[in-house]
């Protein structure tokens, strides 16, 4: 079987006011960030519940980042 490089799939739930803004600033500074990270913007990281986390894992995420 052909071996492929492992490309993890990570979903990041980022708070609109802090971490999402930080990710924007990283972008504006042209920092390289892995394409593995898929950002979902929320208005507050406290919005994230077990439902969302489990659904995300069931859909095949290798990791979840909740940052706020």
């Amino acid at each position: 079987m052909e071996e492929r490089e492992f490309q993890p799939r990570i979903v990041g739930f980022l708070c609109n006011w802090c971490t999402y803004a930080a990710a924007d600033m990283a972008g504006a500074s042209k920092k390289e960030i892995s394409a593995s990270l898929n950002v979902v913007r929320v208005m507050c990281s406290s919005r994230i519940d077990h439902n969302l986390l489990l659904t995300t894992y069931f859909n095949g995420a290798d990791g979840i980042l909740v940052a706020g």
Partner: peptide, 24 residues
């Protein structure tokens, strides 16, 4: 959909960045 700050600007490989933009 943010395909600039959190896509085009952070992924140097054009093909990968395009895939990402489509995904977003």
């Amino acid at each position: 959909v943010n395909i600039r700050e959190q896509c085009a600007w952070i992924i140097p490989d054009k093909e990968k960045a395009t895939d990402k933009a489509i995904q977003y």
